[in-house]
Amino acid sequence: MNTVWIVLPILLVLMFQLGLELDRKAFAGVVRHPRGVAAGALGQLVVLPLVAFGVALLFRLDALFFMGLMLVACSPGGSSSNVFSMLARGDVALSVTLTALSSLVTLVTIPLIMEAVARFVALRSDAAIELPVGRLLVQNIVLLLLPMACGALFRRRFPARAQRLHALLGRIAFPALMLLAALFFIQYADTILENLPTLGAASLLLILAAMAAGRLLARAFGLDRAGSRTVVIEVGMQNAAQAIAVASSPLIFNNETMAVPAIVYALVMNVVLLLYLKAVQRRDARRAVQ
């Protein structure tokens, strides 16, 4: 069974859910929170791919895993980051703005970066990986832009229903992603377990480096505590479902081995961010006592 037929509906639901959060205020956040948007966008769109490239070189990943890790880093922010930002007492409006902005910008940046990475991988090894840029762009528009637009239109036309539907999808989204990870793990258990030490360590280093970079960027741009937490979460939390969809899609790479880094990243990412959430909640509790 090709897991792409599982990940595609999940990705569509996630992007529709994000669209339900979008209104004029979300994109007005670019004007209201320019420093936060600049810090988050710089971290997500520039720093994270560069860090991932360095990590892939450091761990000497083979061609398919190299491409897979880069796909994760080039993907937009995960929609669950908005929930994590809320639980961490971050700036939820900034989180929504950054997630929406990265989902739009990566329509262009994913093909550009991944084409360059494919050429580098071809030079570095004998593996020639062809990237159909046009089909990738079309797939991203269909899977990212259109469901977001439909969600935003539904919110505008039926605001009360949109609020109820968003709450429902919010409860479904995380379990759906975990189900996808579990099914993928079962189907490719041998490949995942064989490479788990390397990919797990690479994913952990990438996430920690991304979150540290987010913290440094937040400090450099003079963000407050809420903004800083949001940028840390946004830079560290990627849309793994998008990376899996690109890797396993029959229209693009049609290679589920390339999707393995995204699955490992998703599992490690949620553990690390849950620990981060626990840490900031304990810190807030200590401050409240003092």
Rank of each mutant, 00 (worst) to 15 (best):
R225N: 12
A167Q: 11
V117R: 08
L223W: 02
I207N: 11
A127H: 10
A189N: 06
A162Y: 00
Q163R: 12
N140M: 15
G222P: 07
L193C: 10
L153G: 11
V231Y: 06
A182M: 14
R124E: 14
L179I: 13
R215F: 15
L208T: 13
L153V: 11
D224T: 04
S203K: 02
L223G: 00
V133Q: 08
E194C: 09
R135V: 10
R124K: 15
I172H: 03
V108F: 14
R124M: 12
T191K: 15
T191Y: 12
E130P: 04
L107W: 04
L205C: 14
Y188V: 06
I141S: 13
Y188W: 12
L168G: 05
V108W: 12
L145V: 06
L165D: 00
A202W: 00
P197D: 13
A210V: 08
T191M: 13
A218M: 07
P197F: 05
L143F: 12
G200I: 04
F154A: 08
T191I: 13
R155E: 00
A202S: 10
L165M: 08
A127S: 13
R229E: 07
V142Q: 09
G170D: 03
Q163M: 11
L177S: 03
A149G: 15
A213C: 14
D224H: 11
G151E: 00
L180H: 01
V133E: 08
A118M: 10
A160H: 08
R171S: 08
A201R: 05
Q187Y: 11
M178T: 10
A118Q: 07
L208E: 11
L112Q: 02
Q163L: 11
R155H: 04
G134C: 07
G214K: 01
I141M: 14
A210C: 09
L165Y: 00
F221V: 01
V142W: 10
F154D: 03
D224I: 03
A173K: 06
L146P: 11
L123S: 15
A213M: 05
E194I: 08
R155V: 00
I207D: 04
E115F: 09
F174H: 13
L183I: 14
L217W: 03
R219D: 07
S203R: 03
I192W: 00
F120K: 08
H166D: 07
A218N: 06
V133T: 13
I110N: 02
A189G: 04
S203C: 08
R225H: 12
M114F: 06
R135A: 14
G134Q: 10
R157V: 10
G214T: 03
L208A: 14
F154T: 03
S203F: 01
R215P: 08
A127Q: 11
R229A: 05
I110W: 02
P175I: 04
L136K: 06
L146S: 06
L223R: 02
L136R: 04
L107A: 02
M211T: 10
A220L: 15
L168M: 13
L199E: 02
S125A: 05
I207Q: 09
L206F: 12
P175Y: 00
R229S: 08
L217E: 01
D126F: 04
M114W: 03
A176L: 15
N140W: 05
F221C: 04
L137T: 15
I207F: 06
N195W: 04
D224V: 05
A173Y: 01
A122F: 05
A189V: 07
A128R: 15
A122L: 13
G200N: 07
